[in-house]
């Protein structure tokens, strides 16, 4: 007769966390940073069609680090649920907070399932504020939610980073970030930070307009605030 064995919940949780952090440690970083006109999002990503930053809904974007296949399905589900909600009610009723809860529940359920592998991803759900909203409505403020693999999320301010060396990048941003940066200065700050990090790395990843992915959520844009910046545009902004 086989003996039933006991593993403590703490141990199960720790094992899963160790497993995921080994995966995430390999993931290149994505930085989201508030600038004067909205939110700027930059990732180390030389690919031209597989993105880490993408448009979800009018004022909402998603940034992800980790396994593409695992967050791609969440990206599309996010667009789908947002469009359904906006179609049912009104476009402004779709919020980053609501979407974050949806993702959080799903990721939490997968992480807790005894027979499933936790998702090896981290997400940033970002929403840009509006310029015309009443000051106390909450719509005026930018929102950034950081969701860990187990669905636990936190609200971030000013900037947020996901990926293997997120802690090191945050340490640099704590020193260098200032409020109200214009877009070129904000982009310069992020690329400089990436360069500092890469200088210590072994794999010699060069930061050029061709090797980064840049997008923004612009307060002043019409309904769809999300915009992907072309390599040419990034080159101009950095020159």
């Amino acid at each position: 007769m086989s003996t039933p064995y006991y593993v403590s919940p703490e141990q199960i949780r720790q094992d899963k966390e160790d497993f995921v952090s080994r995966g995430i440690a390999q993931a290149k970083e994505v930085v989201v940073l508030e600038y004067r006109e909205g939110l700027l999002m930059v990732a180390e990503n030389p690919r031209k069609t597989t993105f880490k930053i993408s448009e979800i809904y009018d004022r909402i974007a998603l940034a992800a680090a980790g396994r593409i296949a695992e967050y791609e399905i969440l990206r599309v589900a996010g667009i789908r649920e947002s469009e359904i909600k906006g179609f049912r009610y009104y476009r402004e009723d779709v919020t980053a907070k609501w979407l974050t809860n949806l993702y959080s529940q799903h990721m939490g359920a997968v992480a807790q399932a005894w027979d499933a592998k936790p998702l090896e991803i981290e997400l940033l759900v970002c929403e840009v504020g509006t310029t015309d909203a009443p000051a106390d409505s909450g719509l005026r403020n930018n929102q950034i939610y950081h969701i860990a693999f187990d669905g636990i999320y936190s609200e971030e301010e000013k900037y947020a980073v996901i990926g293997g060396r997120a802690t090191a990048i945050i340490e640099i941003l704590e020193q260098r970030y200032t409020d109200g940066l214009e877009m070129p200065a904000a982009l310069q700050l992020i690329t400089d930070t990436f360069r500092t990090i890469e200088a210590d790395a072994e794999d010699d990843y060069e930061i050029t307009p061709q090797t980064i992915e840049v997008a923004c959520l612009e307060k002043t844009a019409d309904r769809r605030k999300f915009r992907r910046l072309s390599t040419d545009e990034v080159t101009t902004l950095l020159s």
């Binding site: 399905i73 599309v76 589900a77 789908r80 649920e81 359904i84 949806l102 529940q105 799903h106 359920a109």
Partner: peptide, 16 residues
């Protein structure tokens, strides 16, 4: 709960 079943379906009308 997040419904993942419509992945790969880009037809919103059909999903609705």
């Amino acid at each position: 709960m997040l419904d993942l079943s419509d992945y790969g379906n880009s037809d919103f009308f059909q999903i609705l």
